[in-house]
């Protein structure tokens, strides 16, 4: 399971970075989205991977922490998803405005001379 998750994160991050460095605004925004998926999975994996383990414990009982999932990364990842989603939406608006004002979808607002 660890291997599958790591490969998944690696592929997402790799393609994200490649797209981020491309000259078209649409490629940049897709790159940022892929990167944020990779980062979200990464945060999630930092709570260690467990299966069938509840994150909530009963109050007042002695427990063995190894049999429980870590709830903190799950909370963090939710926050990160929400924030990432909002900022990506905002970036999309700026991207459209830039397209309208410059007439091109190049990130610099003009085609490179080549």
């Amino acid at each position: 399971m660890e291997l599958v998750l790591s490969i998944g994160i690696g592929v997402l991050a790799g393609s994200g970075i490649w797209l981020l460095l491309r000259p078209r605004t649409y490629q940049v925004i897709i790159g940022l989205s892929l990167l944020s998926y990779a980062v979200n999975l990464f945060i999630f994996s930092m709570g260690r991977l467990t299966i069938n383990a509840p994150p909530v414990i009963k109050a007042g009982t002695e427990i063995d922490p190894a049999t429980f999932a870590d709830p903190v990364p799950q909370a963090l990842v939710l926050t990160a998803i929400v924030i990432g989603f909002a900022t990506t939406a905002l970036f999309l608006v700026v991207l459209l405005a830039s397209r309208g004002l410059t007439g091109t979808d190049h990130v610099d607002g003009k085609e490179s001379e080549r």
């Binding site: 605004t25 990167l35 970036f91 830039s98 607002g109």
Partner: peptide, 16 residues
């Protein structure tokens, strides 16, 4: 808009 586009892209990457 042109400067803002770069600013937002860079800061989104930095946030990641």
């Amino acid at each position: 808009v042109r400067a803002g586009l770069h600013y937002i892209a860079i800061n989104l990457a930095a946030s990641l």
